[in-house]
Simulated assay, not measured.
Amino acid sequence: MASELVLKYHSFIFFFFLFSCGTKQREYGENVYFYIDFPHEKELKGQVIELDTALLRYPFRIRVEGDRAIIMDLHGMDHYGHLFQYPSFRYLSSFGKRGESPSEMLSMENIRFYNHNIWTLDANKKELNQLGFSSSGDSLLRDDVVALDEEILRALDFAIYNDTTLIIPDYSGDNRLCWVHRNGRILNKTGSIPSANRKALQNARPALAQAWRSFVDYNPHNNIMATATQLGEVLEIYNLKDSTYIVRIGEYGEPGFRIAEGYGIPTGIMGFSDIQVTDSAIYTVFQGVSFKEIAQKKGRRPDGGKYIYVFNLKGEPLYKYVLNRYIYGIWVDEATKTIIATDVNKDQPIVRFCFE
C-alpha cells in the first residue's frame, strides 16, 4: 500500500512538472527551454596560488593567453589591471591607471585578449582602450582610445566578434545586443529581451534591461556567443554560424525586480557572475543567493558563488561543480582540465581547480 502511495505521489509530481513546463513554454516561446537539475554533480577543492604581491583589492576577472595572465581589479586603488607571468603568476606590471586625466581610467568593466593585444572597457568614460605589449612583453602600453557611440547606454560588458566588430549588450531595453564597429559607431541592434513580463516590456523596458544585465562571451572557433544574467537564472546561446538562438531558464527563473522612480530594484536572487564559452562547453559561475538572505547576513556572507555550472553548446546542463570556497571570475583551460578562479574574500585570491 505504501509503495502504491509513493508511486502515485511521484506520478503526480511528474505530471505537475510537465504541466508547469508546458504552461511556461506557451508563455515564452518555442526556443525557450527549462532545466531543473544537472546529470552530474561533483565537489571541487581549490588550491591557492601564492602571489608575490598584495595589490589586489577586488579581483573580478581573470584572462589568460599563452604565458601571460591578466587580473582585473574592480576596486583597484591605483590601477584596474595587473599583468602576471603564467602559470607561475609572478607579478610583472600594472596598467589602467585610475584617475580623471585623458590617459587614465574611471572604471574597468572587462578585459579581452585579441590578436596579441588587450582591449578594456571603461563604462564611466564610455571608452574602449586598446593596449599592446612592450618589446619585453612585461608591460602594456595604450595604443588607441575609442569613444563609444552616444546611443550606447551604459556599456557594462563586451565581446570581440572579429577584427572590425564588437558586441555590447543593449541596456535601452529596445534590443538585446548592439553590434559596434571598433571605431565606436553602432552598426546594428538585434534581438529583444526574452522576458515573459509583458507589462514591463510594454511600459518599463529600461528598468527591465537593467534587471536583465548579462555577462557575455564569444568563441570565434565555434561561433558561439552566450550570455548569463546577473539576476535570476537565464542563459542565452547564439550560434552566429547558423543564426540559431536558444534560451535556457533554470530553477530561479528570469531576473526579478520592482520599479522605483523609473529604476529597476533587484529582487529574487543573485545569479551568474561570469561566463566563458570554450571550444566544447559553456562554463558559468553561479551564486543562487536571495537578496533577503544577503540582507539578513549584513555583509557576513562571503561574496561570490560556490557553484560552477557547465552546459553544452546548446545550453543543455552537463555538470554542477560544488566548490569549497566562493569565487567570482573564472578562466577555463580544457586541455589541462584546469579552472583558475578569483576569490574576492581572501588575501590570496587566486585559486586553481582541477576537474575531470
Rank of each mutant, 00 (worst) to 15 (best):
A209I: 06
A226F: 01
V285I: 14
R258Y: 08
T227W: 00
R205W: 03
R300T: 09
F257S: 04
S214V: 12
A211R: 05
S214W: 00
G264W: 03
P220T: 08
Q202C: 11
A295V: 12
K189F: 07
Y218A: 09
F286Y: 14
Y252N: 04
L201C: 09
H181M: 11
Q296H: 13
I186H: 02
D274A: 14
I246G: 06
L235R: 03
F291A: 13
G250E: 07
P266Y: 12
N183E: 02
G262P: 00
E254R: 06
D279L: 15
K189N: 07
K189Q: 11
K199T: 05
P206L: 11
A207M: 02
Q276Y: 07
A204P: 00
T229L: 05
A211G: 14
D274Y: 08
Y283N: 08
Y238L: 07
S243C: 06
S273M: 11
G288L: 11
R213G: 06
D274M: 14
R185N: 14
R213H: 11
L187V: 07
V247S: 12
L231S: 05
V289C: 07
S192V: 07
R182A: 09
Q202N: 09
R301C: 15
Y252E: 03
Y238T: 00
R248H: 04
N183S: 13
S192D: 12
Q276V: 14
M225C: 04
S280A: 15
T244F: 01
F272M: 02
Y283W: 15
L235P: 00
M270H: 06
D279E: 15
L208C: 12
I249F: 00
Y218W: 05
R205Q: 12
V180M: 01
I275Y: 02
G262W: 04
K298E: 14
I259H: 00
G264K: 01
Y238M: 05
N183M: 08
Y245E: 04
G184M: 07
L187D: 08
V277W: 10
N203Y: 08
Q202M: 11
N183L: 01
G184D: 05
S273F: 02
T229M: 04
N239A: 07
N197L: 02
V285R: 01
D274S: 14
K199I: 13
Y252R: 03
A196H: 04
D242Y: 04
N183V: 08
E254K: 03
A207C: 10
D279M: 15
Y283K: 10
S195Y: 04
E293Y: 12
V216I: 15
D274L: 11
E251D: 10
R301G: 13
P255Q: 06
R213I: 08
A200E: 06
E254T: 10
N222S: 10
F257P: 01
R205C: 09
E251A: 13
E233A: 00
Q287G: 05
G253T: 11
F257N: 04
L201K: 13
T267N: 13
H221K: 13
H221T: 12
D274I: 15
M270V: 10
